[in-house]
C-alpha cells in the first residue's frame, strides 16, 4: 500500500506536468492547427534558461523563474515571426516539417552548448514544503509542481474567459476565416499562441528540471510524450490535456513500478496506438474527425 501510494503521488505529479506541457501544445494546435514537433526543445529551452539564470547570473529563485518565463515568451514570438509567419497559407505538411526541422536545430544547438550532461539545480525548495499524506511523504518538489500548475491553470482559464486577447484566440481557434473578417488580428493571435505555448513549455521544463534534472535528450523525449497525452485527451481540449496527462503519468509510474522499468517509456505510445484504433477523437475532443 505504501508503494502504491508512492507511485500514485509520483504519477499524479509527473502526469500533471505532462498535462501542463501538453496544454501549450494544444494552444498552438487550436489556433493554427500546427502540430509542433519542437515542443520538447521548448521544454529544454525553459530548463536551460532557468539553469543559466540561477547558476550563472545567480538571481534569486523567484526572479530567475520570472525571467525564464519572459525569455521563453520572447523565444516563442521570435519563432513565430522568423520561421512560421512566412508559411501562413502554405500547405500544412510544410509547416509540420518546419517544426521537425526546428526541433533538430534547437536540439543540436543545445547539445553543442551544454553537451549531453545532466545538470541539476541547487536545492532551493524549503523542506518544510513537503506534506505528510498518511504514511507517504510528498516531497516539496511535487507540492511546488501542484502549486505552480494550478496557479497557471487558473490564470489561463481567466485569460481565455475574460481578456480580449484570450477571446480573440478562442475565436481564431473556432473559425479562422470568420474571426479574420470580424477584424481579429489573426497574425497577432498566432504570435501570441506561440508565445504562450513557449511560456507554458518553459515552465514545464523548469518543473521537470527540478524533479529530474536538466538534460537535452530527456527533455526532448519528454516533449514527444505530449502526443499520447493529447491523443488521449482529444487534440483540441485544454482540460483534456490535463486529464490525459494525469492518466499517462499514472500509467507510466505504475508500469515502471509493477511491471518493468524499461516498459515505462513505451507504454504511452502503446496506449496511443490503441486509442487511435478505438476512440480516435480522444476522451474530450470534438468529434469533428473526418474519416476519409
Amino acid at each position: 500500500m505504501d508503494f502504491f501510494m508512492q507511485l500514485l503521488i509520483g504519477g499524479l505529479s509527473v502526469g500533471f506536468v505532462y498535462g501542463l506541457s501538453a496544454m501549450g501544445f494544444v494552444m498552438i494546435f487550436k489556433s493554427s492547427s500546427v502540430l509542433n514537433f519542437a515542443h520538447g526543445e521548448l521544454l529544454a529551452l525553459g530548463g536551460y534558461f532557468f539553469l543559466i539564470f540561477i547558476t550563472i547570473v545567480k538571481l534569486p529563485v523567484i526572479l530567475a523563474f520570472i525571467f525564464t518565463l519572459l525569455a521563453c515568451f520572447i523565444t516563442g514570438i521570435l519563432i513565430e515571426r522568423v520561421f512560421l509567419r512566412s508559411l501562413i497559407g502554405e500547405k500544412l505538411i510544410f509547416v509540420i516539417m518546419l517544426t521537425v526541422g526546428l526541433a533538430a536545430m534547437f536540439k543540436g544547438l543545445l547539445l553543442l552548448i551544454f553537451g549531453g550532461n545532466l545538470y541539476t539545480y541547487p536545492d532551493f525548495l524549503p523542506a518544510a514544503m513537503g506534506i505528510q499524506l498518511g504514511v507517504v511523504q510528498v516531497p516539496p518538489v511535487y507540492v511546488a509542481t501542484f502549486g505552480i500548475g494550478i496557479f497557471f491553470l487558473v490564470l489561463f482559464g481567466l485569460f481565455f474567459k475574460f481578456s480580449s486577447q484570450g477571446i480573440y484566440m478562442r475565436s481564431v481557434a473556432d473559425n479562422q476565416r470568420a474571426s479574420l473578417s470580424l477584424g481579429v488580428n489573426v497574425r497577432r493571435v498566432f504570435a501570441l499562441s506561440w508565445a504562450i505555448a513557449a511560456l507554458v513549455a518553459g515552465m514545464s521544463g523548469v518543473v521537470l528540471g527540478i524533479i529530474n534534472g536538466v538534460n537535452v535528450h530527456d527533455l526532448s523525449a519528454l516533449g514527444l510524450k505530449v502526443f499520447p497525452v493529447i491523443i488521449l485527451g482529444g487534440l483540441d481540449s485544454i482540460g483534456g490535456a490535463i486529464v490525459g496527462g494525469l492518466i499517462i503519468g499514472i500509467l507510466e509510474t505504475f508500469t515502471g513500478g509493477y511491471i518493468s522499468p524499461s516498459l515505462r517509456d513505451v507504454i504511452p505510445y502503446i496506449i496511443l496506438v490503441f486509442i487511435l484504433l478505438v476512440k480516435p477523437y480522444g476522451l474530450f475532443g470534438l468529434k469533428e474527425i473526418e474519416r476519409v
Binding site: 516539417m97 518546419l98 526541422g101 526546428l102 533538430a104 536545430m105 543540436g108 544547438l109 553543442l112
Partner: peptide
C-alpha cells in the same frame, strides 16, 4: 552528433 543534428535542422528549415 549534435553538429550533424543542427545542420539537418538548418537545412530542412
Amino acid at each position: 552528433a549534435p553538429l550533424r543534428e543542427f545542420f539537418y535542422g538548418v537545412a530542412i528549415v
